[in-house]
Amino acid sequence: MSTTDCIITSSVVPDELRLNVLPCYLGRHYLTGESMVYDWAARLCSSYEGGHWNFFTLSNGGFYMAPSNMDRVHVRWYMNGYSDMMGADAFGITVTLFALCHLAEHTLDDVIVTRYHQLREFAVHHAEAANILRAID
């Protein structure tokens, strides 16, 4: 069985383990990466006003963040003309992908590039994959 045939699963990180998630997955870039996630959330969703985020680990070694205090949100990215509604989980995946891409360009760190590809591999099988992929295109 190839890795493309494996189902990638996500698990929410319990609150008591959250402190180590970003340093583990982003290394020394964890503060910049976290800031980029929140910045991209504000760029892509005009109604975003901050709040609590859940952290998720992926069975392929990746991770993502998603807001816990949102339902469906309107997401708009003027650079590719995307404008549609998506759920909080899909929004979190989208925002984290944008942040990882930006962070990879900024740092040229292969670990960050790997994190992007791990999350994208999960995203293509998500229930809202079409919206996620249109938003990041």
Rank of each mutant, 00 (worst) to 15 (best):
F56Y: 15
S35Y: 14
E34G: 15
A41N: 08
T57C: 08
I93K: 02
A99W: 08
C45I: 00
M36H: 09
E105P: 01
S46F: 10
T107I: 02
Y78N: 05
V75Y: 03
G87F: 02
N60D: 10
V75M: 09
A99Q: 05
W53H: 11
F56S: 04
A66P: 05
M65K: 07
H102W: 07
L31C: 05
P23C: 08
Y82C: 04
S35C: 09
V95E: 00
S47D: 14
Y30S: 07
M65P: 02
L97V: 02
V73I: 14
L100Q: 08
T32K: 13
M86V: 01
G51N: 09
V73L: 13
C45Y: 06
M36F: 15
T32Q: 13
L31Q: 15
G27L: 06
N80K: 08
T32V: 13
G61A: 09
V37F: 14
W77D: 12
D39R: 15
Y64M: 03
F55E: 02
H29S: 13
S46N: 10
L31Y: 13
G81L: 06
A42F: 04
A90V: 05
W53P: 01
D109Q: 05
C24N: 13
P67H: 04
R76M: 09
T107Y: 02
A88Y: 07
L97M: 11
A104C: 12
L97Q: 04
I93M: 07
H106M: 10
E105G: 13
N54I: 00
A88F: 09
P67I: 00
S46Y: 06
H106D: 12
N80R: 07
M86C: 12
F63D: 01
F91P: 05
A104R: 06
V73Y: 05
M65Y: 07
C101D: 12
A88P: 01
R72G: 08
S59P: 07
T96M: 04
G61T: 11
G27S: 11
W40S: 06
H29W: 15
M85E: 11
C24V: 04
H74Q: 04
M85T: 09
P23H: 07
S35H: 14
A90H: 02
G81T: 03
F56K: 06
A66C: 10
R43H: 13
R76G: 03
M85Y: 14
